[in-house]
Design a protein around this nucleic acid. Structure first.
Lengths: 344, 344
DNA sequence: TTGAAAGCGTTACCAC
DNA sequence: GTGGTAACGCTTTCAA
C-alpha cells in the first residue's frame, strides 16, 4: 500500500520531498537538478536525496517543460515502421538521443489521417524541442515546421533550398552500381524502381542514368519500369520489360530486395536463370537478401551513422542555436553475393 | 516574418487570442474547449475563433496536461520495431488512439540501456495516461507500472495473476498446426523455436507438445531445437537435429519465416527437397513467406484487431475507470502455400 | 453570458 | 547555503 501524501494523492511532488527532508522546495529543486555548480551543504544534499529515494519521487516532466520551455524530447516522423532502413535509423537516433538525455518520440505519418497525425500534436503542442523528418510526401509538414520556426532536420531526404538535411548518397551509389555492372561486361541494363514520385525513387533513377552516361551508354526508356506495389508487381513489370524489349537486358538494378526478389521470380517464370542468364542487384540491402536463393547482391548504406548524426545535429541546434548543415554521407558498399555474374 | 506577441515571443498564447478578440482569457478558453454544453454568445464565439485562426493559436499541451492531470497520450513499449507483427500492432493501435483523440508514443525498449529507457521518462514523468506493453523481458517495467498504479495493458503477452492483457492464441494455433500436419500423414514432427526464454517461444512450445499429445504422439526432445540468432543459425540447428535423429522428421514447425527460410536452406544443403522430402510450416506469417521459393505456409493472427482493441480497452480504462479484462483473440488462420506436402 | 483569480508542479530570481 | 515567491500557459470555480 503506497504511502499517501496530500489527501488522496499517491504521487509525491517536490514539496513532499522538501517537507520530508525538512528543507524548502527551492532547495530540494536545486539538489534534484544535479547541477554540480550549485553550492549545497553535503549533509543537506544527502537528506534530500534520501527523502526523494524513500518517497520514489520523479520530477513531473510536464511541469518542468512548462517552466523551462524545453521538453528534452525529440520527435521523429516516419512513413512506415517495418522497413529495415527506417528501423535502423530510428534505433540509432534513439540511442544517440538517450545518450544526450533526450527522449525520442516516434510518430507514424499516417497517410489516411494526415490532419490528425501525431506530429501536429507533438509539434504544434510544443511536445518536442525538435523534429527529425524522414518523409516529405506530406509537404505541409515541413512548411509548417518552418513557419512555426521549430527546429527540424530532414533525414534521408532533401528539399530544394532547405537548410538542414542529412542524407546518404543514393545517386552516386546507384551510378557506381551501374559502372560496376558495365565493368563486368553488361551493356543492356534495366532498372525497376520503386514509386517514382518519392524521393528515393527519383534519386536512384537519377543515379542510374548518370552511371550509364558515365559509361558512354544511353538510357533506354524501354528498360525502365516502375513498381509501386511490391513483390508480385515486380515480377509483372520485369516480364513486361523483358518481352517488349528488342535487345533484352543482361542485368537489372532493382530498387530494393523485395522488388529484386519479385523480379527474379518473374524472370524464372519465363525460364531465365539468375545469375547465369540475368544479373540482379538490389540498390538497398535488407536481411531478405541473404535468405534468398541465390543471395542478392545489394548496396549497403550507413543508416546507423545517419540516425546518430541526425539526432546529434538536431540537439546541437537546439542547445547551441547552431545553424543546421546539409550533410551528405558518402560512404556505401556493394555487398557482392550470388545474383550477379560477369560476362567476361 | 511572423507577427510578434509579447516581446520577442513568436508563439501565441491563450491570452493573446483573448486580447485580440477583446474577451477574457477564461472566455477564450471556454470557446477553444469546444464544449457544446457551455453557454457562449455566438458572436463572441466567432470573434474568439477568428482571432485564434488569425494568430495560428494551438493550445500548449504541456500546460494543459499540467492543469488537467491528463495528457491524452498513450505509450507503447516495443522490443523491436522492424518486425511485421509489432508493425501491425503499432499501426492499428495508433489509428484507434487517434480516432479517440489520443496520441500514441512509441518507445523502443533498448536492451542496452534499460534504465535510461524512454518508458521511464514517459511513465514516471507522467508523460502518458496509460501504457501498452508488448514485452515483458524486462520484468521491472510491469512491476513499476503496477506500483505507481499507472494504467497499463499487456499486449500479446500475459503474466501470471496479471489483470489486463490481450493476446492471440499462440498455444491453440500451434497445436492445430500440429494436428494439421498429422492429418496429412506426418508422424515425426520437429520444432525449431525462437528464444525459449521469451513469451512467444514458450507458448509455441506449449502448443507444439499439446498438439502432439492430442494426436496420441509423444514429444521427442531430439526433434526440438532452439534458434536464438536468426537465419544462419536455423540452418545449423536443423542439420544438427536431422543428423542426430534416429528417425528423422518428415515435417518441421518453425517459429517464424526467417527461421523457416534458414532451416529450408539447411535442409537443401544436405540434399533434402522441400516440400517433397520435408514439409515446413511457419508459426508466424510475414511478407517473406510469399517471396520464398517455395512459398512458406504460415499461421496468420489478427494483429490488427489486437492493436485496435488494446488501444480502445486502455482508453476505456483511463476514461471510465473500468477494470481491464484478460482477452484472448481466438481467431487465426493457416495460410497454405507450397512448403507442406501430404504423405497420404 | 462573461470576468477574475486560484492553482497544477516545477525552476530561478532575489533576499537573507 | 537556504528560503520565499513569481512565473510558465492552461482550466475551472466562483462572482458579477
Amino acid at each position: 500500500m503506497p504511502e499517501q501524501f496530500r489527501k488522496g494523492v499517491l504521487v509525491p511532488r517536490l514539496d513532499d520531498v522538501a517537507a520530508a527532508a525538512g528543507v524548502a522546495r527551492s532547495t530540494a529543486s536545486r539538489v534534484m537538478s544535479g547541477e554540480a555548480t550549485l553550492t549545497i551543504r553535503e549533509e543537506t544534499r544527502q537528506r534530500v536525496l534520501d527523502a526523494a529515494a524513500k518517497l520514489g519521487y520523479r520530477p513531473d516532466t510536464r511541469a518542468r517543460a512548462l517552466r523551462l520551455k524545453r521538453t528534452y524530447a525529440l520527435g521523429i516522423v516516419v512513413p512506415e515502421i517495418d522497413n529495415p532502413a527506417f528501423g535502423t535509423i530510428i534505433r540509432s537516433a534513439q540511442k544517440a538521443a538517450i545518450e544526450r538525455r533526450y527522449s525520442l518520440f516516434i510518430s507514424l505519418a499516417d497517410k489516411d489521417q494526415p490532419d490528425t497525425a501525431l506530429y501536429r500534436r507533438l509539434v504544434e503542442g510544443k511536445g518536442v524541442d525538435g523534429v527529425l523528418v524522414t518523409t516529405i510526401s506530406d509537404p505541409g509538414l515541413v512548411d509548417e515546421l518552418r513557419r512555426r520556426s521549430i527546429k527540424h532536420l530532414l533525414v534521408n531526404r532533401e528539399l530544394e533550398g532547405h537548410q538542414g538535411s542529412i542524407i546518404v548518397d543514393y545517386v552516386e551509389a546507384t551510378a557506381q552500381v551501374v559502372e560496376h555492372l558495365v565493368m563486368l561486361g553488361h551493356r543492356r541494363l534495366a532498372f525497376i524502381s520503386g514509386p517514382l514520385h518519392q524521393y528515393a525513387g527519383q534519386k536512384r533513377l537519377e543515379g542510374f542514368t548518370k552511371g550509364l552516361r558515365r559509361c558512354g551508354l544511353v538510357p533506354d526508356e524501354q528498360l525502365i519500369g516502375e513498381c509501386n506495389y511490391g513483390w508480385a508487381e515486380a515480377a509483372e513489370v520485369f516480364k513486361r520489360i523483358y518481352v517488349a524489349s528488342a535487345a533484352p537486358p543482361s542485368a537489372v538494378c532493382a530498387a530494393n530486395t523485395t522488388i529484386a526478389s519479385g523480379m527474379i521470380a518473374g524472370a524464372r517464370s519465363i525460364g531465365l536463370e539468375v545469375p547465369d542468364e540475368l544479373s540482379v542487384i538490389s540498390l538497398l540491402d535488407s536481411p531478405l537478401a541473404l535468405m534468398h536463393v541465390p543471395a542478392i547482391s545489394a548496396v549497403q548504406f550507413p543508416f546507423e551513422e545517419l540516425g546518430r548524426l541526425a539526432a546529434n545535429e538536431l540537439i546541437d541546434a537546439i542547445e547551441n542555436g547552431s545553424e543546421m548543415e546539409n550533410v551528405r554521407l558518402e560512404r556505401f558498399r556493394i555487398a557482392e553475393r550470388g545474383s550477379v555474374s560477369s560476362l567476361r
